[in-house]
């Protein structure tokens, strides 16, 4: 389908431009601002010694003109080198390789669960529009949208760990277990690969709370969209046609309503997944989950330039790729787009 390929090519091009812009902006942001990386990373004594400070700045290229630093950075990332974190003294790419799987492990299941739940509840609410079921679902979503994520995580931790003892106190594994041999970086998957079923069970148990909280937050964000998308579809004439054809409710719901309502939901879900990947920071913080959000937070706090650039670049890439994927998926589901 040449029009589809053309569309993808066009999207890809604008995605590349966007990503280049991201490198410029993040780089400028971190370099033009008044924060002093040397001050943040050296002890007061070391900072006061001009030689040590000069050595530090030379080592990280901080003494070069900004555009030289930028060109060097751009050249490096094109080779997959995101620089070295001043904080962990490891390549940023390696750090990301460690922290990103932890976030994926909670974000992907949460997203999948959230879509299923939000679509189900959203359709139900749309079909029972302005009746008690609808009001109840909408109120719950409103509360979810208005709740500070970190507070929700705390309340959940208090209830399910402190009071009920059903879930662990955060973290990825209990102390008695060693992480499984790293393959994907996701403990549950790695443990399953290694056949360590006790570790698998423990890792799964640790997933329950973070996944549950992220799911609840994402559902409340999605519900509104699903509901209004579904209401719009239910009002459409083609649904009246389906009813006039005497089709059973099951077919009308799943073949006619669901399919048409899914399109707008898909777009929003892409956006939500991207923000989930980075935005889980607050929940990760409360549950001591060593994911991307915590890494970003720690690098931001310690003015770890390379790490901040690495994280933001990574998130922007993910965001752009997801949007691209959504566009492509969209044109697969909606025959009208590929044909334009």
């Amino acid at each position: 389908m040449p029009p589809l390929l053309k569309m993808i090519g066009k999207r890809l091009l604008s995605a590349l431009v966007l990503l280049w812009g991201v490198t410029v902006v993040t780089f400028l942001l971190v370099n033009v601002v008044p924060g002093d990386a040397a001050a943040a990373n050296l002890s007061q004594q070391a900072y006061d010694d001009p030689e040590i400070r000069a050595a530090f700045e030379a080592k990280w290229g901080l003494d070069q003109p900004i555009w030289v630093q930028y060109v060097r950075y751009l050249g490096n990332i094109l080779q997959g080198d995101l620089g070295t974190s001043q904080q962990t003294h490891r390549p940023v790419a390696e750090d990301l390789g460690q922290y990103v799987p932890a976030t994926i492990e909670i974000a992907l299941p949460a997203m999948a669960l959230a879509i299923v739940i939000a679509v189900g509840l959203g359709m139900l609410a749309a079909m029972r529009k302005n009746r008690p079921t609808d009001t109840g679902i909408r109120s719950a979503a409103l509360v979810g949208l208005s709740t500070p994520p970190f507070w929700l995580a705390l309340v959940a931790l208090y209830v399910f760990f402190y009071l009920l003892g059903w879930v662990p106190n955060g973290g990825r594994l209990s102390n008695i277990y060693d992480p499984p041999p790293a393959v994907t970086g996701m403990y549950t998957v790695d443990a399953a690969i290694a056949g360590q079923w006790d570790v698998f069970g423990d890792a799964l148990w640790h997933l329950v709370l973070p996944v549950g909280i992220l799911t609840a937050l994402t559902v409340s964000g999605l519900l509104r969209f699903v509901r209004s998308a579904m209401i719009e579809v239910l009002d459409a004439e083609y649904i009246r046609s389906a009813i006039a054809k005497g089709l059973p409710r099951r077919i009308i719901t799943w073949r006619h309503v669901f399919r048409a309502g899914l399109l707008p939901v898909l777009t929003v879900s892409g956006l939500m997944l991207a923000s989930l990947l980075g935005g889980a920071v607050l929940v990760e913080q409360v549950l001591s989950w060593p994911g991307l959000g915590q890494y970003a937070y720690k690098s931001a706090i310690s003015l770890d330039l390379q790490a901040i650039l690495g994280v933001t670049l990574f998130i922007a890439v993910v965001y752009t790729l997801i949007n691209l994927l959504v566009d492509v998926l969209y044109s697969v589901i909606d025959p009208r787009i590929g044909a334009k």
Binding site: E237, Y238, A244, K245, R255
Partner: peptide, 29 residues
């Protein structure tokens, strides 16, 4: 309805489901 009595609406652009093939819409009922 759809079986013993059928209806044709005013605007076919709105009355046909945009994401289902003509074949599906012809055969499902």
């Amino acid at each position: 309805r759809g079986n013993r009595i059928a209806i044709v609406f005013q605007d076919p652009s709105a009355a046909l489901h945009p994401l289902l093939t003509i074949g599906t819409q012809l055969t499902e009922h």
